[in-house]
Computed example of a mutant assay.
Amino acid sequence: MKNKIKIGLIGCGRVAENHILAIKECEWAEIAAVSGGRHAQELGERIGVPVLSGDEICESSLVDALCILTPPEFHYIYAMKGIEAGKHVLVEKPVSFSDREIEEMSIAAKKNKVVCMPGHSYIYLPELIRMKRALEGKRLGVPAYVYLSEMYYMPKELAVKYTGPETDVLCHQLYLCLAFLGMPMRTTAFRTCIEGKENETDGAQVSVMLEYAQGTIVQIFVTWAAEDCSSEPWTFKIKIIGNKGCMSFSRRDFMEKTDVEYEQSLYQEMFNEEMKWFVEKCILEGKQPISTMEDAKKVCLLHKAIVKAINEKVVVEGL
């Protein structure tokens, strides 16, 4: 009989609620403690677990694994403390903006024989695993064009808590590109802000182009400036067009009625599937994540290239 994996949460902000629901849905996991932020005490009391300091939760015998849900600048610190204390860790995206830090986390995890898994959550949805396998099996032939978008209106009171869509959102599309196609040859990108009284979010949006050796062109568009309210909204959209077939995915393919509104059920489902993989496949069965720390390092390098393309208005080669 397996014992449940006892999980500690470091970071008690909005995304912690998604991880709590995911842990509750995972047969072989339970929350053992929480830490971090002004909401930690309230959260611990609500779910009935101890509230510990960052150092305490990393070293606690109550905890087998950690979910690092802090802002990115604290990921490395807590991940390394947890790994060196023999804890498995799931590190929310973006794992780090330093490829050196990601490399050190990976090396430390191997040395201490624990799992270190990036929170690249979308790739664990069955629909996107199917896309990945279809591409690997050449069922779509050679992909000619891939489009990925994430667009919604970000209220100003939330926008001020983040850096921008190219920092806080784009990593999702980048790790999916890596899963589907690998590293591109070159990239260029543009960032604009939609100005005007009617747009109180500062209107940040980013467009990225990636070129692949086989001729594939990828276009990524992320925006906080506007909602897509059309009949087929591209809130989170992926379209792959190959010379022998095509596939598409929308996060709005599955909508459920709640007490107050319709909810995009696939958003929570990706956290559920990611947690099951982390606990059941990686920790209990010793398998690799679908998206690895090596992928997290490549996302970091791609992000640096995109920021350079935006700032210097150039095409970045040799990726």
Rank of each mutant, 00 (worst) to 15 (best):
D202Y: 10
E92L: 04
Q264M: 11
P118V: 02
R252C: 05
L90D: 02
M117W: 08
S250F: 08
K257E: 14
S35R: 14
R38M: 08
A309F: 12
I23G: 01
Y147P: 01
R251D: 02
E317T: 03
F190R: 13
K287C: 07
G215I: 09
A79L: 12
N311H: 13
T292V: 05
V315S: 11
V260I: 13
G182R: 11
W234Y: 08
G8Q: 13
S121V: 08
A225Q: 10
N272E: 06
T187D: 02
S250H: 12
E104V: 03
G13F: 05
Y122Q: 06
V115D: 07
K197N: 14
K313H: 13
S265A: 14
G203D: 04
A16P: 01
V260R: 15
Q214K: 15
G119I: 08
L140K: 10
R252S: 09
R130G: 05
A225M: 12
K257W: 09
K87L: 06
K313Y: 04
E42P: 00
I238W: 11
C12K: 09
C67Q: 10
F236R: 05
Q173A: 05
H19K: 03
L301V: 00
E294M: 09
A22C: 01
R14K: 12
Q41N: 09
E269N: 06
Y152K: 02
T201Y: 04
T201M: 07
F249A: 00
H39R: 15
Y262N: 10
R14C: 00
N3F: 12
V206Q: 04
H39T: 07
V114D: 10
S250E: 01
C12V: 00
C67D: 05
M151L: 06
M80G: 03
G182A: 05
T292M: 13
E25G: 04
E269W: 04
S98L: 05
M131D: 12
K93P: 05
L90N: 09
A213L: 14
N272D: 08
G82Y: 10
T70M: 06
N112A: 03
Y78H: 14
G215M: 15
I306L: 11
V115E: 06
Q268T: 00
F221K: 13
G82E: 09
C12W: 09
R139A: 12
L176M: 14
V260F: 13
A29N: 11
F271G: 05
V51M: 08
V146Y: 11
I77S: 06
V169Q: 10
